[in-house]
């Protein structure tokens, strides 16, 4: 753990530098959400009951696809472009885009959807 932390810090510094170069200032992601809060929400809501999520040990569901590399994919569920805007809408209203798919509407608020999006987009 200790030994990892130095390279990690370096990584974080590089990432942060990248962020400020390519994204609007403010430190938050493009969708305006907080990835830390998003990660917590994903655990509380229970997305992991259906999805494997890298880095979340409790997320071991095998109902939907694993959320690998969500930040680098080009589509969501194969029907939406993978932009923060459409991701926020997908996690709020999956039924609106793919009728009768197994993913339920879980009552996420706008702000919660933005946080969850910021977290998913951070899954490189």
């Amino acid at each position: 753990m200790r030994r990892l932390s130095l390279p990690c810090l370096a990584c974080a510094a590089v990432l942060l530098a990248n962020c400020t170069a390519s994204r609007p200032p403010g430190g938050a992601s493009a969708a305006g959400g907080d990835p830390q809060r998003g990660r917590m929400l994903v655990s509380q809501v229970g997305c992991g009951a259906c999805h494997e999520i890298p880095g979340l040990r409790s997320a071991r569901g095998l109902v939907g696809p694993p959320l690998l590399h969500m930040g680098r994919r080009t589509t969501i569920a194969g029907v939406l472009p993978n932009t923060p805007e459409s991701m926020a809408r997908w996690v709020q209203h999956p039924q609106a885009f793919v009728a009768r798919n197994a993913m339920p509407e879980m009552g996420l608020s706008e702000a919660q959807a933005r946080d969850v999006t910021a977290y998913l987009e951070s899954l490189e």
């Binding site: 229970g46 997305c47 009951a49 259906c50 071991r60 569901g61 109902v63 879980m106």
Partner: peptide, 19 residues
């Protein structure tokens, strides 16, 4: 094992063996 949320309940019903 899981909090009784919409998401957990749905995932459990479909595939408890993964959980």
């Amino acid at each position: 094992t899981l909090p009784n949320t919409v998401a957990n309940l749905s995932g459990w019903i479909e595939n408890p063996q993964a959980l």
